[in-house]
């Protein structure tokens, strides 16, 4: 509150569309409040660009409270920037210093083609969920909710995996652009719960197959995905998915 305005230099990736060549452009902002969010700084930049007759920077964003998973900036070499467990929209400028130069790129991954500037196409994630990230229960089929007793620890573990926001930071962080953390979070949630048992084997096989089809790379075991995940999805989910996959292959008919 009432803190000094900062001067910030931004180097932003500009690319008109998926087919065009991209390049970095440099912008200067002189009155950045430390209480601003990173995206609000981009709002200010865009208003400035429009006023000057230029083209605003296209970036994805929606809820601006860290839950929709739409924002996706690669900031100084890290997805969602320097802070732990924070999405770009919840990153505030007080995390930077007066005079800083900040480099902003889109998610870099073959399976996430750039649409424009900092906006990428993450529809591959939807297709992976469509392949098996669900319990096949039509509306109206359910039994009374309390007839399925789930130990609190199990429910908590399933919930922890289910908090994934599908932003794709894990893919952007990985040098192989692997989607294992994203896929394993959904596989884990449903493998842990009794409701997920009927399709347990089919699910993991179908989702992994789709993941490979989308061109995501293999797991490197370096753990960058989990370290950079804004929701701190645990690396042990990947181990669980691997176990689930092997188990499914062994037990499948």
């Amino acid at each position: 509150m009432g803190s000094e305005a900062m001067k910030i230099t931004l180097k932003v990736w500009r690319q008109p569309n998926s087919k065009a060549e991209g390049k970095f452009e440099t912008y200067q902002l002189d009155h950045v409040s430390p209480d601003m969010s990173f995206l609000e700084m981009f709002d200010v930049l865009n208003e400035q660009l429009i006023a000057e007759g230029g083209e605003p920077v296209a970036f994805d964003h929606d809820c601006r409270e860290g839950i929709c998973g739409m924002c996706s900036m690669f900031i100084n070499g890290r997805p969602h920037g320097p802070k732990q467990a924070v999405t770009t929209c919840q990153l505030h400028m007080r995390s930077f210093k007066d005079g800083d130069t900040i480099v902003v790129e889109p998610w870099r991954a073959q399976s996430f083609p750039v649409i424009k500037d900092l906006t990428v196409d993450r529809s591959a994630f939807d297709r992976i969920i469509a392949a098996g990230g669900f319990v096949s229960v039509n509306t109206g089929n359910a039994v009374d909710a309390n007839s399925i007793l789930i130990p609190k620890d199990t429910a908590d573990d399933a919930f922890a995996a289910a908090t994934c926001i599908g932003c794709g930071a894990c893919v952007a962080a990985c040098k192989n652009s692997s989607a294992m953390l994203f896929v394993s979070a959904k596989v884990s949630q449903l493998a842990l719960l009794p409701q997920g048992q009927a399709e347990r084997e089919n699910r993991v096989i179908a989702m992994v197959d789709q993941m490979d089809k989308e061109g995501f790379g293999s797991c490197t075991n370096t753990g960058a995905c989990s370290a950079e995940c804004p929701k701190e999805i645990d690396l042990s989910n990947i181990a669980r998915m691997n176990r689930e996959y092997v188990r499914a292959k062994l037990v499948s008919k």
Binding site: F134, V137, A142, N146, I148, I150, Q195, G196
Partner: peptide, 17 residues
């Protein structure tokens, strides 16, 4: 009921309810 059947992980008590 429907949401639980889908695997929505609602908060639970120690007894599983």
């Amino acid at each position: 009921d429907q949401c639980v059947a889908q695997g929505v992980p609602f908060a639970r008590e120690y007894g599983g309810t």
